[in-house]
Design a protein around this nucleic acid. Structure first.
Lengths: 344, 344
DNA sequence: AAGAAGCGTCGAAACGTTTCGATTCATAGG
DNA sequence: CCTATGAATCGAAACGTTTCGACGCTTCTT
């Protein structure tokens, strides 16, 4: 690879002049400029970005750290970050997390290869984040509790309002006339699941439902987990009319079990999920759920990051509202069928 | 940020000694080593990866370039690359492509920020790839024709066998007893679509079907496009018993149209897709399709890249086999219903 | 006509590492 | 006792840029 020095030699100017031509062309005379440009062309010179980054001490690059790159769930969010970052002049890198944190995405943070990061991966612990966050590398965490644990001038938070989501779900089911519930929760240590559950119960209590009798099964947010949980619920003094699952994946598992065991949905049992993954609209019956504004979350995260990178320091956490998406799986027995209004 | 020099000063040794402690600890005496380690700890020293990359002229990082990061379609593939790369000691970065190629992912290649790349984005033109590929930056293109256009010592190709996929689809439909077909193809300039179509026709011809009468509509690989295409087919002297769509997205669109217009599937019309996206299994009826080995493609790509990075030069292209995934949407009228064997 | 101002160009330092060869010192071999 | 060997450490150069201050020229101002 040709270096700037090669270009300088060929064009018979100094290295600094070549750099000037590249960065601030107006500052060099037309003749010299042309000579340099010709040399650049002839040598197929390409700037070495690494050398530049070293010299100017920034990379114009940010990273998104994901649990695994493969989850379709975050795709909209990533798109939000990308587009917003793009508009601001940043290159966005996504990196999954290898088992080996040292060569995985954390290397980007640790070794200062990016100017900022957005962290989605819940397996990256807060202490680790606290260690790496610094003035020159602010971090936005997505969807972690804006709790006390992460106090740092260089860490800010964006998330959606899980509690309200749960509340909306509860309200909706009540409005549809259901009075007896079961719950498929996420892992016991999942704050999201917990918040959704809290909101759900809050709604039910407002509706004068006795929440103490509601069976709760904790599972793992996967379709398989939903299947297991639903089976357990059904096998254990089943009386519910509606089941609320802390995410769509598990709800879809539950749907399968119910169908297999010949329950009519929503006639015998209503099912409600959370997240509004793409699949939700396509399963039979289409799954009612709570929609997280993934794209907007991405944009919000990028904006916060940008402000932090500009040096702003006490940026308040941001909580974005979620939205009820009613579909056939929770259609009331009261309401006439056929008024599903879900435009694709 | 503390630099290696700060550490050296604090530990009262030279910079080179600190570097030795970090890279080849056995070469320095236990006492010094300990002093240095203490200094590192005290200063919270973190290596500056950029400086290092500059010095050693490599980054141990590769990039995957995607059309947009958000497509769930490639997730398995990415996982394949990641895991394989991980095992080899590389950090994998994924980057979508911004409108502005200069600050988007191509910057990674152009400015030498990675040691290799895997390109999935069909919108990155071959000339561009030819320009950036070099000894120090080999590129693996995925799923482009292994055609003549991309002759370079530093570009290799991996893809799946689209033609055979089309052939399998045709064979399957014939075996199920269908004799009259319609085709929803991809964009006219899509080589994939073209190959799938060729294979499909080859099978039909072997089955003595007159392929010249088969209506073909070109669309854009999206669900909406599938809807439009299916409507056009139906509105135009419809006689087919089975429709083959060049990908699942369009097939799913077609499914919706058929249902809306009260065709029974597969009784009145069979539908077959291509790709086996996650959704395929969940739509009603479940969609028969051709499965591309996405994960394996990723692994194969990473392996090729690795060999290229080691200097190997004329690596032959690799074409991975695809697999028929029969589901209910093409169930024969002859076969008894109920023998669907699709274990999740 | 003398000084100021501006333009175009350049040399050198700096960014933070790694690594090569040199230097010092202690120990072993003869 | 002298030299060869090896270990521990170091200084300096190099990686490829950007940028600051300086220098020489021309042109303008008064």
């Amino acid at each position: 690879m040709a270096t700037i020095r090669d270009v300088a030699n060929l064009a018979r100017v100094s290295v600094s002049t070549v750099s000037l031509v590249l960065r601030q062309p107006h500052r060099v005379s037309p003749e010299t400029r042309e000579r340099v440009e010709k040399a650049v062309e002839e040598l197929q010179y390409q700037l070495n970005g690494i050398a530049r980054d070293l010299r100017v001490r920034k990379t114009d690059t940010i990273a998104i750290l994901l649990h695994n790159l493969s989850g379709p769930f975050y795709s909209e969010l990533i798109r939000g970050v990308e587009e917003a970052g793009d508009a601001l002049g940043f290159t966005t890198l996504a990196a999954g997390c290898s088992k080996n944190h040292d060569q995985g995405s954390l290397r980007l943070l640790k070794e200062g290869r990016v100017d900022g990061a957005i962290v989605l991966d819940p397996t990256i612990s807060s202490p680790v984040l606290l260690r790496y966050a610094r003035k020159t590398l602010p971090i936005v965490v997505l969807d972690r509790g804006l709790s006390g644990e992460l106090q740092s001038d260089f860490i800010t938070a964006v998330g959606s309002d899980h509690e309200s989501g749960g509340y909306l779900a509860g309200q909706h089911l009540l409005a549809q006339g259901y009075r007896r519930f079961a719950l498929i929760a996420g892992p016991v240590n999942s704050e999201h699941s917990h918040l959704r559950e809290m909101g759900f119960f809050r709604a039910l209590q407002e509706g004068a439902v006795d929440v103490t009798t509601i069976p709760v099964i904790h599972s793992d947010f996967t379709e398989q987990g939903g299947i297991r949980a639903m089976n357990m619920l059904l096998d254990h003094e089943w009386t519910a009319e509606a089941v609320f699952s802390a995410n769509d994946e598990m709800a879809i598992g539950a749907l399968q079990v119910l169908e297999e065991r010949h329950f009519a949905i929503p006639k015998d049992v209503a099912v409600m999920g959370f997240d509004d993954i793409r699949l939700a609209r396509y399963v039979t019956p289409p799954l009612s759920t709570i929609r997280q504004p993934m794209y907007e979350l991405g944009v919000a995260a990028m904006k916060q990051l940008h402000r932090a990178m500009e040096g702003k320091t006490r940026i308040p956490g941001e909580m974005l509202p979620v939205k009820l998406v009613p579909r056939a799986s929770t259609q009331s027995r009261i309401t006439k069928a056929g008024d599903e209004s879900d435009v694709s």
